[in-house]
Design a protein around this nucleic acid. Structure first.
Lengths: 200, 200, 200, 200
DNA sequence: GTCTAAACGAGACGGTACGTCGTGTCTTCGG
DNA sequence: CCGAAGACACGACGTACCGTCTCGTTTAGAC
């Protein structure tokens, strides 16, 4: 076995990037976003993190980019697929986890800020789709297909719409705030959806 | 009967507000928002409308406020209640109207911008709730209650959740852009929901 | 005797100008100038005087004009010529009166403000020259000529320079503030000047 | 002996201030003041100097501050003390230099503008006192004391008043404009004053 | 132990938009 | 015609944040 990393990470010359600073920045950004319930400024992030503005701009193109990375850093909970669980439990569990994540942790506020940013910054929107929404949707889709395969769900189930129906109400309440994210929200959503997809 | 006009419109002293200018501003704001797909600046609105910045600030506290009023001005379609229609048609029609409004007119872009603004500006969020979302929700709720009353819907129907399930997917797609607002979107959503609420 | 004023003042039609308002404005302007030690704004004057801005602009072209009229209104003390007094006493008295006027009354502050305004507004400067400075200078010149005539002053006395030397130090201290306007200032100035102009 | 430069000029971190820009600003400010005979706006200065408004505000708090520094930059003629000269010549020369400076160069206009500004902005007035008036007065006072010491002036000479009498008429004519700054003005003022202070 | 190249800190700078203030004009009504 | 009330245009103000730049100073790892 050779001494060069098999991961082929070319050992670049010069001073290596400081991981402490990177984390300090992500932490500071999240902190500020929570305090102000608004996208923090680059300057504020830099000051809070004890890092120079130059460094920030070197690694992130915009405040949203920092926030997005912070969000992923802190909430990358594995979302493991557990095919042993009945389909309904698996899906309800996923929606319930989302409700609590958005309500009880920083993720909710961060997501709202990022969704706002995505309306003006195309790249943010796409990054969020790729790293946040789509993985979760695919997860749900997987379970729905499993249900169809094992006969617990109707054959012609409209998988895309069902996925929307499961998750959209949660994000909807987060964004508009017309009703709270209640503890039984996931349960109520799934109750409704199930009548429409459960095999007769 | 008194001599005072029954309309009782107190004649306010001073030069009356110019309606032409007001409309010019709302028009300009909407126009700019569509062109740039982003919230226009006060300065840009003023220039386009041929109005001074001072006047803008006199009547609206922020670009979002202008945009919101512009949105309502242009899309105040009556949303009349038509209790003659079967409940399902009424609701499907409402969702379908929303889909087309958001996809085919300026409303979609404007709404996205406003939703972004509402994440940092509390007042915008509340104004949107009061003038946009809640009236439409109450509308749906009315039809749902009508359905329960006439026996076409189950007695225990979870009205709030059903309303969310009907509308949320539409806004969700608008915001995230993970899938288009298709022509049959309303139909598919209602199909799914109906199985869960139709009286057996 | 007829009822029409012999002064031939054409009785103009319509509502006559309100003298109460005029005085209220002059008063308010002076008051504000003193409080802020700066030229008041038209708006502030109007508010304080309980008068509308429209009225202000109808009668005065600028804040300085109001201030100037206020200054003249309040400080038009007669400056009578008293040829019975010895020349030196007359002049010393005039300088001393100026010192106290500028130091102990509103006039000092008002004058500073007006002098500032005159640097950008030509008309103010000329109005001040005509209504304030020149009358006082002519006064002094009169006494100097009297002194030359009665033999108490030298024949070749440079009247213009002497007048400057008498008054300039007072205004100079007012404007620059490098030294106070002391009680004996007039006396000291006159002492110095007298040695240069008294007949030997 | 240490290796550190004896000049001990601490090398300050960060990008050093651009001297070209600083001078361009001062130049532009003076230029504009002369053209318009009025205090230029920050915006005009910035545009003319090819510098951003932000930079202006970073270094100067107000238009007046720029103007003052510009004035000092351009008219810092050495005003050296020449004790070899007879006292009278020294003083006459100083007054004469002032007359020509105010009449023939930009200094006159600039000074008028600054004196106007000083009436509303305390800091400007004090800066002008410290950097402009007092140095010149101390200069004159020095010569007067020299005259007293060498017996050419009377023992009890009122130095402060004499200094006022020498300079005030010049500034007075500049501000009020009731008479021009003639070529022989300095001579005439000194003639008058001298009779009052020359030793008998 | 140097050497070197990149990371990093500090801060100047240009630029855009912000929201405010003061001026002066205009419009509508009432005395 | 006087006057009040207030809409409006214009121009300057001072601030905030953005993103770029230009210095000087670390600092890990290669030689």
């Amino acid at each position: 076995m050779n001494t060069v990393s098999s991961k082929a990470q070319a050992v670049r010359p010069g001073r290596p990037r400081s991981q402490e600073r990177r984390l300090a920045v992500l932490h500071a950004a999240a902190e500020l976003a929570l305090e102000d319930a608004a996208a923090p400024t680059m300057d504020a992030i830099a000051t809070r993190a004890g890092v120079s503005r130059t460094t920030l701009y070197k690694w992130w193109p915009s405040p949203s980019a920092v926030l997005l990375e912070g969000l992923l850093e802190h909430f990358h909970e594995s979302i493991e697929l557990d095919d042993a669980l009945p389909v309904r439990e698996a899906l309800t569990g996923q929606v319930d986890a989302l409700v609590h994540l958005l309500r009880d942790t920083a993720a909710g506020t961060l997501l709202r800020g990022l969704m706002a940013a995505s309306s003006s910054d195309r790249t943010v929107g796409e990054a969020m789709l790729d790293t946040w929404l789509r993985p979760r949707r695919e997860h749900a889709v997987h379970h729905l297909h499993r249900g169809i395969a094992d006969g617990s769900l109707r054959a012609g189930t409209d998988v895309e719409i069902v996925t929307d129906a499961l998750f959209a109400p949660v994000y909807h309440r987060l964004v508009w705030g017309h009703a709270p994210l209640e503890d039984d929200l996931a349960e109520r959503i799934c109750d409704l959806v199930w009548s429409g997809i459960a095999a007769p």
